[in-house]
Structures are given as structure tokens and as C-alpha cells.
Design a protein around this nucleic acid. Sequence first.
RNA 1: GCCGAUGUAGCUCAGCGGUAGAGCAGCGCACUCGUAAUGCGCAGGUCAGGGGUUCGAAUCCCCUCAUCGGCUCCA
Length: 646
Amino acid sequence: MDEVQITLPDGRVGVFPKGTTIKQVFEALGLKDSIIGAKVNGKVVDFWYELESDATVEPVSLDSPEGLYLIRHTAAHVMAEAVQKLFPGEVKVTIGPVIENGFYYDFDFPRGFTPEDLEKIESKMKEIVEENKPLVRKKVSREEAIRIFREAGETYKIEIINEIPPEEQITIYEQGDWFDLCRGPHAPSTGFVKAFKLLSVAGAYWRGDERNPMLQRIYGTAFSNERDLTEYLTRLEEAKKRDHRRIGKELDLFSIQDEIGPGLVLWHPKGARVRRVIEDFWRKEHERCGYDILFTPHIARLDLWKTSGHLDFYSEYMYPSMEVENTAYQLKPMTCPFHIMIYKSRIRSYRELPLRWAEVGTVYRYERSGVLHGLLRVRGFSQDDAHIFCRPDQIEEEVLGVLDLTVFFLRTFGFDDYEVYLSTRPEKFVGSEEEWDKATRALQSAIESKGLKYSVDEGGGAFYGPKIDLKIKDVLGRAWQCSTIQVDFNLPRRFEISFVGEDNLRHTPIMIHRAIFGSFERFFGILIEHYGGAFPLWLSPVQVRIATISDTHIGYAEEVYNILRQENLRVEKDFRNEKLGLKVREAQLERIPYLLVIGNKEVENKTVAPRKLGGKNLPSMKVEEFLRLIEKENNPYKWREVENYS
RNA sequence: GCCGAUGUAGCUCAGCGGUAGAGCAGCGCACUCGUAAUGCGCAGGUCAGGGGUUCGAAUCCCCUCAUCGGCUCCA
């Protein structure tokens, strides 16, 4: 066979000699200029790709997601060339991948790049783009590659070459007199990088390992046209307005202060109110699902953490212990040992399993200073932690129950978009392979029975068991782990807990650690960003504000206020001697869902005039009518059925 | 922890060697007002903290702390 048959999306079929490149195929078929690459059997490739077997070939246009990938990858090369041309001899290149929304390139550079450097690099890049240099792919042998990069002094590239599997073809992409070790794919020429912007500089360790040298990373983004770029940059600006740190301040929800300490959160009255609503709902739902609620102390004898093993593998995240009456005590970084000790406080029968024990437990972890981030990564936080003690044969059902509850919670709080990860057995592990396989299958079938899309993190499980993690993205697209379901074969053994089985013998139970919100702090942060501070009615710290038009309306307004208070609504008065325009503006800025305006008409007819957040005016209505109107919105189980809510 | 940037009034920011400024918020007075800012006035700061250079430092240098953007890990 020295021919290949290719199939196009429109069903056309062509036969070409084996080894024909995508470029040749497209030239033969007479495709348009806007095509910059192809998908061969679903994989993105560039014009240099050689067809070795029958395949489906789909053209990739420059503004498609795949086209953007090619453009951004090439943009990274253009940037690397610009940097090396501007600082000849000073810069070594390392890697420059495409990432979501852009690209970066890591350089070994003796100093950091300044904002002025970025400007210079950008204008140099523009020159390279204008030259519209074709990117030429060259196959080289391993020895040749090493020679080339040794001559160029590119030591990192040599390191990379040495790690490329022997069977893989090594390729170099050239653009004029500049070249880079790269597997591709790329846009056909530098001219396709039409719209780009360098965004930030950051330090990054070579291969992400802090024992390695620190490199200088430049982040940038690129699009196929200026309009998309501008739109993206505007969107970034808009996103920053939803940042929970900013909104937290604006709406007086929480603060983190120097005098208290980094990563330690103060919940202000309005933030605390939202948390109360969340916690109340949480407690109620857990009791409904057969959980018992526990309370445990904030410190315990250090020995407890020796038994649990945390002192061995987790001590870098623990605050130093304190000495009391010649005994070392430890601020708790986890709640599990406490729950285990409750389990252990008496003999347990197989009949009472599963035991589902939940606690809003505040834990303290010493996170390194550079990683703290608003509410999303802190040093003191309250987990919605629970531990399920069960028999091995109950794992599957329990995991399914937890996942069910998790999905229900996320939906209730308005999250339909999250990432699911299944992490499997790592190299070092406790327990038997059979146990692991069984538990992993249980997790997997739970995910699949819920119809969730997920990625498998092969070998990414903790040493003590496999896990499911759910991550939610913040406003800038950074994913944060919230929910987690972890099977644990380790702690039950370390603490030697057991239950008496049907056979009258002692057996070791399995523990499932799980959290749905992860921590109230993090979840609240994500929630703030998700809604941009405009919480749905049932979560809103202030649900209704009553605004009078003049002093003469206060008497009746007080009556309305009292009725709403009786209904347990979170309601505020604005009876100030101010113009309505101002009262409306302030209520809007504070994201209050309903403003009830009371003027002469309302006093006369015993009604209220509701204005919804966003500006929609509703007709004047009786208070009872208003209460009926908001009933669904104020109900966690039903609010999502209401229209105009996302 | 590491790389880089930043830190001035409650908030947002200007000032960048000659001794502290604006807008908003706050307070007072007037205005009694129908759906996103009524007007006038007043008050408010060890310029993150410490050290140094200088006749003189918010401004230049050093150290510390914190924040922001990344890197690793994680809820």
C-alpha cells in the first residue's frame, strides 16, 4: 500500500500517495486562505503533517478554537524570537505552550522582565509578524538535534531532547533565522499572529519544581483579529469587577486584616448572614440524608496527630504545636481523627453501619504566604466535613449517595458548570490492590450513573485511597477544588477501629471523607463571583429594602416593615430624608433584590411598589401579593424554576 | 517559600526631593423630594512599619510586613 485515502467533512474522498502533506492535499483541493491547519482523525495538525494511513481530514479555519491554538502556539514562538533578538546571548529558551485563553513562554534570564521590556518585546513581535516568515518544519535526528542546540547553548532544550521517547521523531520549527525545538503544530507563517497582547510576567520554576532554577515566564494572548482581542481584554476587565475580594469590600461581607493575620477571615454581619443561610440549609439537608452532626475541639494532644500520621506527611501545613502542662497540643488541621475517636469510644456492630457524621469544623493550615488568595485560599477555614464509616460492601452505595447530595447542592446554589476528576492509585499506597480496584470502580460507577463528564487523574489519588474531586472556576477561569469524596483505607488501620460482623469477628471499616462546599470560605468566595454579588433572593443578606418618598410615609412603611419581619424576611428600612433617586441607586449598588417604594399612592391604597434589582418596576400591589410573588424565589428547592434567574 | 509588581484619608486614586491633594463615603445645615448621585459647609492622613542618604524624604537606597499576578501543593 503506497496510497492513502482521505475523507473530507463534506464526504468527498481523495486518494494521495503515502506521505503526502496536509498542505499538498489542500492545494490539490483548492481550499481557502483562511484555512491554517487541519484535524486528522480529530487531532489538530499543521500543513506539514504527513498522511501515513487512511484518515478523515477536516480543515481548520483561523478563528476556530483549533485555529486559535495554532495561532497562539506560533505567537509563543514569535515572542521567544523577539526576546532572544532583544537580549542576544542572555536568554535561554525552555518551553512555551498554549494555555486556556493564551500562551506563555518560560525563559532563563538573569533578571526579571520589566513592563518596559514587555513593550519592547511586543513591538519586536510586531516586526516579526509583519515579516510574515513561514514556519518550516524540519525533521532532525536525535544526534543532530543535540548538536544544534548545544551549539546554540540551549541547555534546557537538550534536557528535553533527552527525554523524548526514542521512537518519536524530533522536529524543529524554523522562522527565518530563528528556530525552536518543537513538536508543533503551528500556523503556516508568523503573519497569522494578527492580534496579540503580552499580559504579565511571573516567576516559574523549571518543570514546576521548586528545587529547579526559577525561570521568567511571560504570559500573553493572541487572536485571529483585533476585535476578538479587544473583546477578550474587555471581558477580563469586566471579570475583575466580579472579583470576590472587591465585592466583599464593596458589600461589606468580609475582611482579611493585617492586624488579625494573613489568611484569617473576618465575616462581617452581611457575609455572616449569608453563611447562616447556607449552614442552616446544609444542616437540614444532611439530617434529611441520614447524617448526624458533631462538634469537636480546635486543639488536641499532639499524639493524636502522630497516630493519624499527619505529623509525618502533613507537618509542613500544620501550625507549630504548643506546650501546656508538659504536654504538646496541636491546632487542628483536619477533623477526621476526632470523628474516629468518637467511633472508637465504644464497640460498633455491623448493624449500625454506615455511620454518617458531619461537622462544620474550623481547621487551621499553615499555607505558604505566596499562595494565599482572598477567601479562596486561606489559613483558617471551616470545612463542611463528613466521615462515613461503612462496611466494604457499602462503599458503592455510600459514594453514590454522597455524589447525589453533592450534585443536588451545587445545583441548588446555581452551579451547573464544574469539572469532575477521578484520581486513581499512586505508586505508593496503603491497602491491597483489590481494595483499591473495588473502591475506584465504586467511584467511577457513581460518576457514570450521574451522567457526569470527568477526567481521570491516573495515579493522582492520595496514598490512602482513590478520590473524586469537583472543581469550580472563579471569575478569571481559575479552577478551585470544592467538593471531594475520598475513600480511606489508612486511618481505620492506624487507629485500629473495627466493627463486629455478622460472623462475630472484628472487621476494619472503610472511611469515606467528603466535603461538598470544601470550605465555607472558599465556597462563599466562588458564590460571590458566580453572582457578582447579586445573590438569589433566598441567599441575599438583605432581601428587601423599604424606601419612603417623604417623611409622611414612614408610619405606613413601618407597618409594612413589621409584616415582612414577621415573615422572617431579611428586610431593611430606608426612611431617610433623601430623594428616591438616591435610595434607588444605593439599593442597586448594594445588590438588594427588591426595593419596595412607598409614597402617597401606596399609603392611600395600602400597597407597595416593588422595584427589582436591575430596574424592572412592578405594579403597586398589596403586601400579601408581594409575599406570594417572592415565595418561590425565596425557596431553595424552587428558586431555580423562577424565570429570569440564571 | 520563590520570581515580579504594588502599598498615600473608610473607598478609588493623583502627587515621585521643598514639608499632603481630589472624587466618593462620613459629619453638619438647608431642601420634603416617585425609580441609578440635591446643594453648601466641616472634619478626616506617623504617606504600611523600621533603618539609612540628604539642609530637607510620601518621593532615593536597604530591611521587614502585607497585598496583587504567577510557580508547587491543596479545601
